[in-house]
Amino acid sequence: MIEIQNLIFEYPGVLALDDVSLRVEQGDITALVGPNGAGKTTLLRCIAALDTPISGTITINGIDVLTHPRRVHQQLGYLADFYGLYGQLTVEQSLRYAAMAHSIDAIKIKEAVARASERLEISDRLSQKVATLSRGLTQRLAIAQAIVHEPKLLLLDEPASGLDPEARHALSELFVSLQQQGMTLLVSSHILAELEEYSSSMVIIREGKIVEHQQLKDRSGQLIVVRVATSQPSPTLATLLAQQSGVELIESSEQSALFRFAGDDQALHEILATLIRNDVSICHFGQDKINMHDAYLAKVSSLKQDASS
């Protein structure tokens, strides 16, 4: 879906994106996390062809963003951190304008407006002036505008900032629903709790570099992380696990391991059987959950350790 290679972006005197390469699969909800000023917004703006990098390539569905930005715009929606709306227009006028601005056929505009407003549950507000909407409803209208032309990719920059917990939860459900309808989402935030509910992968960006890209869930939304613990130290634990197909080790020691697993229950049983056959004294074997917050902090901590050593 999105393929980025060796992207370099500079503001005068500041290297905002430093040789960034990234691949986002179709149908994923990818969380783009990192501290303020890490380069999240710049990366999103480059993908949206709003800013032009110094060098590197970005393709979306095989279309080169730098060469054909206007073609790319037809395939994506972008919600900026400070989304702009025309306060004096009604909700319906705003959606009609967005639909017309994306060259939707005149006869299909009404249908597009109805579909977007239904998706965002703002159909009952169509005649209301935008300036009179609550923060949550304004957010919904902004997203409705961004998806009125049915884009394949939706880029969202800090979408939940300023929303109350109820509105945040509703937003999470909306993102999952958009994903289920085939949309790919790239969501930037530095608030991990809001991303955990719906993200299927996480990209950590720090000082303009991508330092981690982790798969968190498979497409069906099931967690596929397994934790193993042994009662006795077992030097072969990590080696045995690494030899199994579908296993990707996240962390390991002589008495425990955490691995990402892609396979069915029978395959999982085979792994357990293999460990037992090799005299690994298993005392715990079960699915675990990657806590985004912990994973992020663990990565940041290891980066700091690497830097200090």
Binding site: A48, L50, R70, H73, Q74, Y78, Y83, G84, Y86, A101
Partner: peptide, 16 residues
């Protein structure tokens, strides 16, 4: 006004 109201990026991404 578009830049100040942050609506310009939306227009830049349109098919107009």
């Amino acid at each position: 006004n578009e830049v100040q109201d942050r609506t310009w990026d939306q227009q830049r991404m349109s098919s107009i």
